[in-house]
Design a protein around this nucleic acid. Structure first.
Length: 296
DNA sequence: GTGGCCCTGTGA
DNA sequence: TCACAGGGCCAC
């Protein structure tokens, strides 16, 4: 469920709670939740949280390990750091990369708080504990050195950030796809951060049928879509994301953007613009809701 | 391209 | 009781 605006909101609300703190212990309650970098676990002890940020739908925590542990890390680094520096990563020796998938959440609880039913990993900090909770257990954490990102295929395939790219760039990438425009939006190699909610909502606002073949849409329509997508993402970030059921930010607050939905989750309801009944279909394996009258 | 899978909780 | 929610991945 967390898409770009939700992960961005989580990063913003988590950052002030953990930045500058040190990790004392890490408790992995569900082994598969730590999907990569188990061998780095000892290096986390004493590491300082340098920054919290987002790339695509991935929440990242930049860490600075202790001098002693840095020396330990050097043994596992790739020779001479010969890989190109990733422009999406700040200069940190170590990262935690979380994918929240549908139900991943973060909490900072008082020290010594016991795990909850869905707690998967607990990071003990100077002041309190960072809980990574996940009901459906699809989410994961990876402990990564910078060079590990070069071999993480998912990361390498990610397209541009929708709020950094220009509308023209986004329009061009979308128009190059031979799939439905909905599938093109959901494809993280085209543009990152878009999930089912913001795909449907941006298509509605651009008045484009979700099943249109992307490559057949006029450039003007693609440009409108790109602009609609940017506006909708910015508005959703301002409103701290959309809370359907599980999503909360790192302070436990719900978002408000779900009040602005025109189509998502509104199958058979009257269109808020024209009054026609909204229809639904399946595209790219996802329930898709649209207005057959407004969207051509 | 589509469908199944990973999962649990919710709502009809 | 069972369909449904869905990001990413995999087999087909």
């Amino acid at each position: 469920m967390p898409e770009l605006p939700e992960v961005e909101t989580i990063a913003r609300t988590l950052s002030p709670q953990v930045q500058g703190q040190h990790i004392h212990t890490v408790e992995v309650l569900l082994p598969k939740a730590l999907a990569f970098g188990k061998e780095y676990l000892p290096v986390l002890r004493g590491a300082r949280v340098q920054c919290v940020f987002r790339r695509a739908k991935v929440l990242l925590v930049g860490l600075v390990p202790t001098q002693e542990n840095l020396a330990l890390l050097a043994h596992t680094a790739s020779p001479a750091d010969s890989f190109p520096r990733d422009p999406h990563l700040p200069d940190c020796p170590l990262f935690l990369a979380f994918h929240l998938k549908m139900t991943g959440r973060f909490f900072v609880h008082p020290a010594q708080s016991p795990p909850l039913k869905h707690t998967r990993i607990i990071f003990t900090l100077d002041d309190g504990s960072l809980f990574f909770d996940d009901i459906r257990t699809f989410g994961y954490c990876r402990i990564m050195q910078p060079h590990d990102f070069t071999t993480w295929e998912f990361w390498q395939r990610l397209g541009p950030e929708p709020l950094t790219a220009t509308p023209a760039q986004l329009a061009e990438r979308l128009g190059a796809k031979k799939t439905s425009i909905k599938a093109a939006l959901l494809d993280q190699s085209t543009v990152v951060g878009v999930g089912n909610i913001y795909a449907d909502e941006s298509l509605f606002r651009a008045r484009i049928r979700p099943d249109s073949r992307a490559s057949t849409l006029p450039h003007k329509k693609l440009l409108e879509l790109a602009k609609a997508l940017q506006e909708i993402l910015m508005q959703a970030i301002r409103e701290c994301g959309s809370s359907i059921r599980d999503y909360r930010d790192a302070q436990g607050n719900a978002g408000a953007f779900q009040n602005n939905f025109f189509v998502y989750g509104q199958k058979n309801a009257p269109c808020k613009v024209c009054g026609h009944a909204l229809e639904s279909c399946t595209l790219a394996g996802r329930t898709t809701v649209f207005c057959p009258h407004c969207q051509k």
